[in-house]
Write a protein that binds this DNA or RNA. Structure first.
Length: 930
RNA sequence: GGGUGUUUAGCUCAGUUGGGAGAGCGACGGCCUUACAAGCCGUAGGUCGCAGGUUCAAACCCUGCAACACCCA
C-alpha cells in the first residue's frame, strides 16, 4: 500500500466536492443537538472576493466541526438581491450596449436583472463549492424568491398596522445620480477642500448693524443654495446681532424678503456668526425653519439641477455651474465680501459616490426606537454575545441614538412596496391589492395604482435567519434550527445588518436571531491596502487556489475600469507584486492561512502570499507523512499483541493534548490557535520526532516484531486523529489521506466528514512517557547543537559520553538509547564516573547531566572555548538577575512562597551549570595550551 | 469634536488571572540522511511606541502624550 504520486491540490480537490454533495453529506442528519449558521447572503453583484472566502472558511470550519461532534449541522445557503448595487451593475452593462433603462422599461429591465442573477448566482455557487463550503444546497434561498417576497409583505403590513411604518414628506438624503433616497447609513462623510464665501445680505427698513453697516455678512460653503433661502439666523445672545432679531433682509439675486431669527443652535464662532437658512436643502436649516415657521422652498430637480422655483437665469443649471454663476453674479453686484479656503465634510453616496442632497420628498419610514429597545436588552442581558466583546459598545452607542429608517427606494430592482393609491392620493396597504382594497373599503370600480418604489435591500436581509427557515410558516426547520447559533460577519455591517436582524427577529419570532456574533476584520492585500477594483489590487480567491499567470492577472485587473488612466499604474504594481504570477496553492492552503490569520481582536487581515506558501508546504508535509506511514503500514498479523513503546505512548499522549487545545480554541473562536496547534503537532511532534523514532523500529522489524507492530498501529491511529482534527480547516487533503489510511488499517468508514471528532478522553494522559521523551529530545538537541556549531558533518558519527547523571538519567538512557543513537548520529555511548577526567570534549547540560562529545579528530578546541564562553556569559547574566531578586528582602517576604522557591531553584541550577561550564573551559584551555 | 482599537524580532502577528519575551516567514551557516529540497539540522536578531505611576515584581494594571487605523457627528 502506497500513496501514488505527489501532492497536487487541484487534482485532489476537484472530484471530492461533487461526491460529498451528491452523497447528501451537507444536509443536517442524525438526532444530535441542532447547530445552525445562516450564511451572510452574498450580493449577486459579481464574483466573491477574498473577504468572502475568509468568512466562508471560518463558517465551514465551525460547521464541519459541529457535524463531526454529532450535531445536526445546517449551514444555510442563500444570496441577496442587493437592490441598488445590482441595479447599477445591470444598468452599466446596458449603457455599454447603448441602451438606457428608460428605453426598455421597468418590466424588461427587471427581466434582464433576473438573467444577471442567474449568471452571477451560478458563479458564486461555483466559487463556494471550490472553497469546500459544506452548505446545504437543497435549502438554498434568495431574498427575492417567492417565499421571501411573501414574508417581506407580511412584515411590512404588520409593522404598518402596528404604526411602526409610516409615509411622510421630509428631508431625505437624495442621490442625484441614482435618483433615489438612501438611508443615513448609506451616506459616507468625506473630508474635502472647499471654500467659505462671505456674502452681503442688505438689511431692510433702514436697519443697521451694531457697527453701523446697512447689511449683514453671511458665510456659506454652498452659495448656490441661497436661491432657496427663507431666513437668516443668529445666536440670540450674540451682542453683534442681538438687536437685529426680527429685522428683515433682502435676499440677493432673488429679491425675496427674509426675516432674521434668533436660534440657540447657531454657532457664533462659525463664519460671521450670521448664517443663511435654507430649510429645503439642509437638515439643520430644516429644523431651524420648523422652529421659526419659515417657508421651505425646493430649488432642485431630482438630478440636482436648479428648478423653476429659482429665478429664470439659473433654471436647469447643474448645481455646480449654478454655484459658479451665483458667485460671479454676486461679485458683479459687489455683494461678495470675501472668499477663503475651508475644509468641509461632504456627504457622498456609498454606491454612486455622488454628492448627496437633502431633498424634500414623500418616503416610507420605520419608527425604529420601539424595535431598538428589546434589541439593546438582548445584548445587555447576554442572550446575544459579540466576539470580540468590544463591538457591543459600538452596537449600544448606535442603537441608543438610532434614527427612523428610510426604507423606500426609487429603484426598479427590489421588493415592490405593498401599498396602493387612488387618484386622490389616499394610500392603502395590504398583503396584495385585494386585501388593500378590503382594508380601505375601496370599491371594485375605483382604480388603484401600486406604489412604484421598492424597499431598501436591508429590509429583507433583516429577516434572513428566520425566513430562510420557512417563516411565516411554522416549519420543522424553524422549530429546530432557530435561533441560529452563530453569525460570522464583518464588523462593517453591524449597523446595516446585524442590528436590524436583531430588531426584526425579536419582533416577529420573539427569539434572538443568533446567540453569538463573531465579527472579523477586512481582508487587505499584503501591504495592508484595502482591496478595490479601482485600485486594481483585488484577487479572486480562485486565483490563489488554481493559480494565475501574470499576464492573465494584469488583464483581469485592468479590464472594465471606471478610470482607464489607472491601467499603467495597476499593471506596474501587479508586475511588481507578482513577477511570476500566482502559483496554484490549493483550497486547503488558503483555508489554513485564513484560520491562522483570524486574530482574536477582529482587526483587519493582511493576506500575504508568503504565508500561504508556508501552509501549502504544510499540506505537502501531511501528504508525505501519510506516504511514509502507508509505506510501512502493512500489518500481516492484526491480532498479534503490540505492547506500546515509550515513543508510542508519548505521541499518543501528545495527541490527547492536541485535542484538548483544539477544543478550547474552537470554543473561544480562536481559529488562529486552532491552526497553530494542528501545525505544531503535525510538523514538530508527529513528523520531526515521532516518525523519526519509528524508523529504527520499522527498518529492523524482524528484530522486534511486536515493537514494529506497535509503531505501525500508533503511526496509523495517530495520523487518523490528526487528520480528523485538521479536517474542518483543510477538508480536501484530510479526506484524501484519511481514506488511504483507513483502507490501510482495514477499519470501516466512508468519509472523514461524518466521522466523530476525536475525543481527548479516549487517549490516556501519559506524563511518564512525556517526561522521558522530553529528556531524550533535550539530549538529542544538545548533541545536534554541538554538531551544528562545531561543524561536524552529518555523516560523521560521534562518541557520546555522559557524566553526573542520576538514576533517572540512567534509566532514561536505557529506555531510549536506540532512538538517541539514530536521532543524534551517535556511534557509541558510555557513562563516565562522576570524578573521572573526561577527554577534551564539547559539553551540553541537560539538568545536572553532562552531555560530552569528545573533540579529538573532529574540531579545534578554540571554537569550543568560544562557544563555552558564550553560554557562560549568558548564564552569568541570568544568575546575576536571579541573585539580585533573591537579595531583595521585599521580594523574599512579599512574593508568594512558590515564586520565591522557584527563583531559588533557578539560581541554584544556574550556579551549578555555571560552575560546570567554567571548569570545562579551564580544562579545555589547559589542553589547548599543552 | 466624541468613541473604539492598534503600536512586541527585518516582515506578518501571538503573548490566556501581573512572576524566566514567542511563532511563521525572511536572514545567515551546514546538509540531495532510503516520507518530504514544498525538505532536514543549527544560528543570529527585541530599551515590548514615549514619559510617569502602582507593585517585592509590569509587554500585561493606572495616568498623560505621540503615531496610525476605523466608527460616529
Amino acid at each position: 500500500m502506497t500513496l501514488k504520486g505527489t501532492f497536487e491540490p487541484s487534482s485532489l480537490e476537484r472530484p471530492l466536492y461533487d461526491e460529498w454533495e451528491s452523497s447528501g453529506y451537507f444536509a443536517p442528519a442524525g438526532n444530535g443537538r441542532p447547530f445552525c449558521i445562516a450564511i451572510p447572503p452574498p450580493n449577486i453583484t459579481g464574483r466573491l472576493h477574498l473577504g468572502h472566502a475568509f468568512q466562508h472558511t471560518l463558517m465551514d470550519a465551525l460547521t464541519r466541526y459541529q457535524r463531526m461532534k454529532g450535531r445536526q449541522a445546517l449551514w444555510q445557503m442563500g444570496t441577496d438581491h442587493a437592490s441598488i448595487a445590482t441595479q447599477m451593475i445591470v444598468e452599466r452593462q446596458l449603457e455599454a450596449q447603448g441602451i438606457s433603462r428608460d428605453a426598455i422599461g421597468r418590466e424588461e429591465f427587471v427581466k434582464r436583472v433576473w438573467a444577471w442573477r442567474d449568471h452571477s448566482g451560478g458563479e458564486i455557487s461555483q466559487q463556494l463549492r471550490r472553497m469546500g463550503s459544506s452548505l446545504d444546497w437543497s435549502r438554498e434561498r434568495f431574498t427575492m424568491d417567492e417565499g421571501f417576497s411573501t414574508a417581506v409583505n407580511e412584515v411590512f403590513v404588520r409593522l404598518y398596522e402596528d404604526g411602526l411604518i409610516y409615509r411622510k414628506k421630509r428631508l431625505v438624503n437624495w442621490d442625484p445620480i441614482l435618483k433615489t433616497a438612501v438611508s443615513d447609513l448609506e451616506v459616507e462623510n468625506v473630508a474635502e477642500r472647499g471654500h467659505l464665501w462671505h456674502i452681503r445680505y442688505p438689511l431692510l427698513d433702514d436697519r443697521r448693524t451694531s457697527e453701523g453697516a446697512d447689511h449683514v455678512v453671511v458665510a456659506t460653503t454652498r452659495p448656490e443654495t441661497m436661491l432657496g433661502d427663507t431666513g437668516l439666523a443668529v445666536h440670540p445672545d450674540d451682542p453683534r446681532y442681538r438687536d437685529l432679531i426680527g429685522a428683515r433682509a433682502r435676499l440677493p439675486l432673488v429679491g425675496r424678503e427674509i426675516p432674521i431669527v434668533g436660534d440657540r443652535h447657531v454657532d457664533p464662532e462659525f463664519g460671521t456668526g450670521c448664517v443663511k437658512v435654507t430649510p429645503g436643502h439642509d437638515f439643520n436649516d430644516y429644523a431651524v425653519g420648523e422652529r421659526h415657521d419659515l417657508d421651505c422652498i425646493n430649488i432642485l430637480n431630482d438630478d440636482a439641477s436648479i428648478n423653476d422655483n429659482a429665478p429664470e437665469a439659473y433654471r436647469r443649471m447643474d448645481r455646480m455651474r449654478a454655484r459658479e454663476t451665483v458667485v460671479a453674479d454676486l461679485t458683479d453686484l459687489d455683494l461678495l465680501a470675501s472668499v477663503e479656503a475651508h475644509d468641509l465634510t461632504v456627504p457622498r453616496g456609498d454606491r454612486s459616490g455622488a454628492v448627496l442632497e437633502p431633498w424634500l420628498t414623500d418616503q416610507w419610514w420605520v419608527d425604529v426606537k420601539p424595535l431598538a429597545e428589546p434589541a439593546i436588552e438582548a445584548v445587555r442581558d447576554g442572550r446575544i454575545r459579540f466576539v470580540p466583546r468590544q463591538f457591543e459598545n459600538m452596537y449600544f452607542a448606535w442603537m441608543r441614538e438610532v434614527q427612523d429608517w428610510c426604507i423606500s427606494r426609487q429603484l426598479w430592482w427590489g421588493h415592490r412596496i405593498p401599498a396602493w393609491y387612488d387618484d386622490r392620493g389616499n394610500v392603502y396597504v395590504g398583503r396584495d391589492e385585494g386585501e388593500a382594497r378590503k382594508n380601505g373599503g375601496v370599491p371594485d370600480g375605483t382604480a388603484l395604482a401600486r406604489d412604484t418604489d421598492v424597499l431598501d435591500t436591508w429590509f429583507s436581509s433583516a429577516l434572513w435567519t428566520f425566513v430562510t427557515l420557512g417563516w411565516p410558516e411554522r416549519t420543522p426547520e424553524l422549530e429546530r434550527f432557530h435561533p441560529t447559533d452563530v453569525l460570522v460577519t464583518g464588523h462593517d455591517i453591524i449597523f446595516f445588518w446585524v442590528a436590524r436582524m436583531i430588531m426584526m427577529t425579536l419582533r416577529f419570532t420573539g427569539e434572538v436571531p443568533f446567540r453569538t456574533v463573531y465579527t472579523h476584520g477586512l481582508v487587505r492585500d499584503a501591504h495592508g491596502a484595502k482591496m478595490s477594483k479601482t485600485k486594481g489590487n483585488v484577487l479572486d480567491p480562485l486565483d490563489i487556489v488554481d493559480g494565475i499567470s501574470l499576464e492573465d492577472l494584469v488583464a483581469k485587473r485592468t479590464a472594465d475600469l471606471t478610470q482607464p488612466q489607472m491601467v499603467t499604474a495597476i499593471e506596474k504594481a501587479t508586475r511588481g507584486d507578482y513577477p511570476e504570477g500566482i502559483r496554484a496553492y490549493g483550497t486547503d492552503a488558503l483555508r489554513f492561512t485564513y484560520c491562522a490569520l483570524a486574530s482574536p481582536t477582529g482587526r483587519d487581515v493582511n493576506l500575504d502570499l508568503g504565508r500561504i506558501d508556508g501552509y501549502r508546504n504544510f499540506c505537502n508535509k501531511l501528504w508525505n507523512a501519510t506516504k511514509f506511514v502507508l509505506m510501512h503500514a502493512e500489518d500481516t498479523d492484526p491480532d498479534a499483541p503490540a505492547p506500546l513503546g515509550l515513543a508510542d505512548r508519548w505521541i499518543r499522549s501528545r495527541a490527547r493534548r492536541l485535542i484538548e487545545d483544539v477544543e478550547r480554541a474552537i470554543g473561544d473562536y480562536r481559529f488562529d490557535l486552532y491552526a497553530n496547534a494542528v501545525h505544531e503537532f503535525a510538523w514538530h511532534e508527529y513528523c520531526d520526532w515521532y516518525v523519526e523514532f519509528t524508523k529504527p523500529v520499522l527498518w529492523r522489524a524482524e528484530e522486534d516484531p511486536a515493537a514494529a507492530r506497535a509503531a505501525r498501529r500508533t503511526l496509523l491511529e495517530t495520523l487518523d486523529v490528526l487528520l480528523r482534527v485538521a479536517h474542518p480547516i483543510t477538508p480536501y487533503i484530510t479526506e484524501t489521506l484519511w481514506r488511504e489510511a483507513r483502507a490501510a488499517s482495514g477499519r470501516p468508514g466512508e468519509t472523514i466528514m461524518l466521522e466523530p471528532f476525536p475525543q481527548a478522553d479516549d487517549i490516556p494522559d501519559d506524563a511518564e512517557a512525556e517526561a522521558a521523551v522530553e529528556w531524550l529530545k533535550a539530549v538529542v538537541v544538545g548533541i545536534r547543537n554541538i554538531r551544528g556549531e562545531m561543524g561536524i558533518a552529518s555523516g560523521v558519527g560521534v562518541r557520546l559520553l555522559l557524566q553526573a547523571g542520576d538514576t533517572t538519567d540512567r534509566e532514561r538512557l536505557r529506555a531510549t538509547e536506540t532512538l538517541l543513537r539514530r536521532m543524534a548520529g551517535v556511534e557509541t555511548v558510555a557513562w563516565l564516573a562522576a570524578d573521572a577526567e573526561a577527554p577534551p570534549s564539547a559539553v551540553q547540560l541537560v539538568g545536572e547531566l553532562k552531555v560530552l562529545v569528545p573533540l579529538e579528530g573532529l574540531i579545534d578546541i578554540d571554537r569550543e572555548c568560544e562557544r563555552l564562553q558564550k553560554s557562560i556569559s549568558r548564564f552569568e547574566s541570568d544568575l546575576g538577575r536571579s541573585e539580585q531578586k533573591l537579595g531583595n528582602e521585599n521580594f523574599v517576604t512579599k512574593a508568594p512562597a512558590a515564586v520565591v522557591a522557584k527563583e531559588r531553584d533557578k539560581a541554584k541550577d544556574l550556579a551549578a551549570k555555571l560552575e560546570t561550564m567554567r571548569e570545562q573551559l579551564s580544562r579545555l584551555r589547559g589542553t589547548g595550551a599543552a
